[in-house]
Amino acid sequence: MKAKILILTAVTLLLVSCGTKKSVPAVAATPTVTETKATELTPELAEGKNLYDNSCARCHKLYEPKKFSQEEWKPILTRMQKKAHLDDVQMASISNYITSQL
């Protein structure tokens, strides 16, 4: 009987110790310039983001605009325009959105 109580106590102690949430000191969340810039989109930039999200994600995963420089994006967008069947106005909108996020 004592062995069962000791085993039960040990199992309970193990479960409680594994299930406790460690407290992490809270860091004040202050928005940086890039976070603020990314959330405030004009209607034109929002349209570019929508086109980027919907047109490009059909074939591959989306890349963060900051992953490439503006010079690196130009040939990528040119090549993808043909594959996605986007006209020049739509492509300009996507390009403006990506440039605004750099």
Rank of each mutant, 00 (worst) to 15 (best):
E40C: 03
T12K: 06
N50M: 05
I94Y: 01
K37R: 15
K21E: 09
T32I: 00
L14C: 05
E72Y: 05
T36W: 04
I5G: 00
L62Y: 09
G48L: 04
Q70C: 06
P25G: 07
G19E: 04
I94P: 03
Y97N: 08
D87P: 09
L45W: 05
K82M: 04
P25Q: 13
L15M: 08
P31R: 03
E64V: 13
I98Q: 06
L102N: 12
N54M: 09
P31V: 02
K2L: 05
H85N: 15
P65D: 01
A26F: 13
L45Y: 05
V27C: 00
K22T: 13
L41M: 03
M91Y: 07
D87F: 08
M91C: 08
C59E: 06
G19C: 06
N54C: 05
T78H: 02
P75R: 01
A10N: 00
A29Y: 11
S55M: 15
A38E: 03
K66M: 06
K61T: 14
T32W: 00
L13H: 01
L77F: 03
L14A: 06
K82P: 02
V11L: 00
T78L: 07
K22C: 07
A84I: 02
E44N: 11
G19Q: 04
V33G: 05
P75K: 01
A26G: 10
G19R: 03
N96A: 13
P43W: 02
T78K: 11
T12N: 10
L102K: 11
G48P: 07
K74G: 08
H60K: 04
R79N: 12
S100A: 12
R58T: 14
L8N: 09
L8G: 13
F68D: 09
V33A: 14
E47Y: 13
I76E: 05
L6Y: 04
K66H: 07
H85F: 09
A28T: 07
D88I: 14
P25R: 12
S23R: 13
I94C: 01
E72R: 08
A92R: 14
K83E: 11
L6G: 01
K37G: 11
P25I: 11
L6V: 01
A29P: 04
A46T: 11
E72Q: 13
A3N: 15
Q90C: 02
S95H: 12
G19F: 04
T20S: 10
L15C: 09
L6A: 05
P25Y: 07
A84D: 07
V27N: 04
V11R: 00
C18A: 15
T39D: 06
Q101K: 12
L14I: 10
M91W: 05
A38I: 00
A28R: 10
L62F: 09
P75T: 01
G19P: 06
A46V: 07
Q90K: 06
P25S: 13
Y63V: 10
L8W: 03
Q101N: 04
T32V: 00
M91K: 12
M91S: 15
V24D: 08
Q101V: 02
H60E: 04
W73C: 01
Q70H: 13
K21V: 14
R79W: 02
K49W: 01
M91G: 12
K4R: 14
N96R: 14
